[in-house]
Amino acid sequence: MTAQNGRRRFKHEVIDATPGGEQLTLCLQCGTCGGSCPSGADMDHTPRRIFAMIDADMKDEVLSSNTPWFCVSCYYCSVRCPQEIPITDLMYTLKQMAIREGRYEQRRASDFSETFIGYVESYGRAFEMGLATRYHLFHNPMKMVGMATGMGLSLLQKGRMSLTPERINNIEQLQAILNKAKQLSAGGA
C-alpha cells in the first residue's frame, strides 16, 4: 500500500537495516525456517509467514508479533535456508524496529534485553544477579520468590552468582564508542 504513495516499502526498510538482508528478496516461501525453528510452534507466525507479511507491507502485524522475540538465535534456519537468507539477523532487525516504532507487545522480552544492556552500558559487563532481580521485580514478582528459594538460591550457594557488578576500567572509552554508534545508527543503520 505504501509503495504506490512513493514511500519506501517496509521490505526495503528491513533489508537496508540488515547486513546481507538483500537475500530476503529471494525467499521462496519453502518453510525450511519455520520447520527448523525450536520455538516455531509457539510463535504467532512462522518466520516464513513473517516474510510473506513483510512482502505484503503488513508492518503493524509484523512488528507486534511475538515471532522475533521467540527467536532463540540458534541459526538453524540461517544455515538451512536454500536461498541463504540471514534469517536470524533479520529477526534482530525486526526486534530493533519494533522497539523503535513502539509497536511491540512483547514487553517481557524487550525489557529483558533492555535491562541487560543497561548493565553492559554502565559497567561494561553483564550482571546476572542485578538483571534477574530488576527484571523480575518488574515483570514477575512471583519469580523473585523462586529466585530467592529455588534455583537462584542454589546458584548463590554454589558461589555462581555475584552480588555486586564488575566494572571495566575504561568505561568512558566504551561509552564513547557506544554513543557514537547510536548516533550513526539513528541516521539509519
Partner: peptide, 12 residues
C-alpha cells in the same frame, strides 16, 4: 520428518 506445513502455517 520435521517441517512447516506452509499451507497451514504450522510446524509438523
Amino acid at each position: 520428518i520435521q517441517c512447516e506445513d506452509t499451507l497451514i502455517g504450522k510446524q509438523r
